[in-house]
Measured scan of single mutants.
Amino acid sequence: GGHPVTTQMVETVQNLAPNLHPEQIRYSLENTGSVEETVERYLRGDEFSFPP
């Protein structure tokens, strides 16, 4: 991942996926670069990993 992630982006995802840890959200956003894509992954039931 190398996309810039803002606190705003993390908070937006958190509102839609409250049971995800912020670190999981941030890591996913760094890989996708997209709030929409991260939320899609969540709704699909994809696994969210923590940063290594």
Results as ranks from 00 to 15, higher is better:
L43A: 07
T7M: 14
G2R: 15
I25E: 03
V35H: 01
Q14D: 01
V10M: 14
T12G: 07
S34G: 04
Q14G: 07
P22V: 14
H21M: 09
L29G: 01
V10P: 02
E47H: 14
F50A: 03
E11K: 10
Q24S: 03
Y27G: 04
P18F: 07
H21F: 07
V35G: 00
E40H: 13
N31A: 14
P52V: 09
F48A: 01
T12D: 12
T32Q: 02
A17M: 08
R41M: 12
G45V: 00
R44Y: 05
G45H: 04
E37S: 08
N19Q: 11
T38A: 02
L16T: 06
R41L: 11
H21Y: 07
T12P: 01
Q24H: 02
V5W: 11
N15G: 12
T38S: 07
T6M: 07
V13D: 00
T6R: 04
S49W: 10
M9P: 01
P4E: 13
P18Q: 09
N19T: 13
R41K: 13
V35N: 01
G1H: 13
N31M: 15
V5S: 03
G33D: 03
P51G: 07
T6D: 07
T7P: 15
Q8W: 13
H3W: 14
E23P: 00
Y27F: 12
S49Q: 15
P4V: 15
T12H: 14
A17D: 02
V10W: 05
A17I: 13
Q24R: 00
E40I: 14
A17S: 04
H3Y: 15
S34K: 04
S28T: 04
A17W: 05
V10T: 05
P18R: 03
E30T: 09
G1C: 11
E40S: 11
V5Q: 03
P52N: 08
P52G: 09
S49F: 14
M9R: 02
P51E: 04
I25Y: 00
T38N: 00
R41F: 07
L20K: 00
G2S: 14
E47V: 14
L43P: 02
G33S: 06
T6H: 05
T38F: 02
F50V: 04
T12R: 15
R26C: 07
L20P: 00
R41Q: 12
L20R: 02
E47Q: 13
G1F: 13
Q14H: 11
P18S: 07
L20M: 07
Y42T: 02
V13A: 05
N19K: 11
P22A: 10
G2F: 14
T6Y: 07
A17Y: 08
Y42D: 03
P22E: 10
V13Q: 00
N31E: 15
Y27T: 05
M9G: 01
E36I: 11
L29I: 06
T12A: 15
G45C: 05
E37D: 10
E47A: 13
E47P: 12
G45A: 03
V13M: 04
N15S: 15
V10K: 04
R44Q: 09
H21L: 09
N19C: 11
V10A: 04
E47L: 12
L20C: 04
G1K: 08
Y42N: 00
R44T: 07
D46H: 10
P22R: 10
N31P: 00
R41E: 05
Y42P: 03
E36G: 09
E47R: 09
E11L: 14
L29P: 01
V10Q: 06
S49T: 13
L20E: 02
P51T: 04
L20Y: 02
G45N: 05
Y42A: 06
S28R: 00
T7Y: 11
H21A: 11
P4R: 14
Q8N: 10
G1I: 13
P18G: 06
E30F: 09
P4C: 14
E37Y: 06
S34A: 04
R26N: 02
Q8I: 11
Q14L: 13
P4A: 13
V13T: 06
T6S: 11
Q24T: 01
S28L: 07
E23G: 07
V35C: 04
V39F: 08
G2E: 11
Y42S: 02
I25A: 00
H3V: 11
E11W: 11
G2N: 14
Q14P: 01
E30L: 11
P4F: 14
P18E: 05
G2I: 13
F48T: 02
V35A: 06
E11P: 00
P51M: 07
N15P: 06
